[in-house]
């Protein structure tokens, strides 16, 4: 499980409301996705493209259970990296099939526009632009199983709990 993508860097304690504001919950997903970082980085959703990676600082995703990962996937974001995740946000990302890896120090080695290479099995990430690399903890096997299925719902469908 290795990916490479262009990086966007955000700060510490970026909240779920900054990514999925309350008013956007009234909209269908493709429209709601246009409001990610609506106040933090206005216009960002016009610039992000398929395959990009979002890198954040501490306590990433503080806040609610709204499925932010669905919006990132809608926009083409392929992975999240952070110094530290809020645990509900981390679970929510994985459960919706968006790879998310805790890499202490990651925010310090990336700037907007750099290219990141990430290996979720071995648990490292590298700034391809600067060659800085950080080894962290790999994703556990059961988490990789969820991601490999594309999230919990496809996994449950495979196991016969949900209509295919």
């Amino acid at each position: 499980m290795e990916i490479e993508g262009r990086v966007w860097v955000v700060g510490d304690s970026v909240t779920t409301d900054a990514m999925y504001p309350g008013y956007a919950m009234k909209l269908p997903l493709p429209e709601a996705a246009r409001h990610v970082f609506y106040d933090l980085r206005p216009g960002w959703t016009d610039e992000v493209r398929e395959g990009d990676v979002v890198v954040a600082g501490r306590n990433f995703g503080l806040g609610s259970s709204r499925p932010v990962a669905s919006l990132f996937l809608e926009l083409g974001v392929r992975a999240l990296l952070a110094d530290e995740f809020n645990s509900l946000f981390l679970r929510n990302c994985i459960n919706f099939g968006l790879p998310a890896l805790t890499v202490p120090g990651v925010r310090g080695i990336f700037a907007d526009g750099d290219t990141a290479r990430v290996d979720f099995v071995e648990g490292w990430c590298e700034n391809v632009t600067t060659r800085a690399k950080i080894q962290a903890e790999p994703l556990p096997d059961f988490v990789r199983d969820i991601l490999a299925a594309g999230g919990l719902l496809p996994k449950l469908a495979r196991e016969g709990y949900v209509p295919r």
């Binding site: 259970s65 509900l88 929510n92 919990l152 719902l153 449950l156 709990y161």
Partner: peptide, 23 residues
Amino acid sequence: ARGLGPAEVYSILCTGRTWFTVA
């Protein structure tokens, strides 16, 4: 008791269990 997000709660509804890493 803790918040787990819609996909995970749906999964628990189906299977009756989930995982926790003890902090």
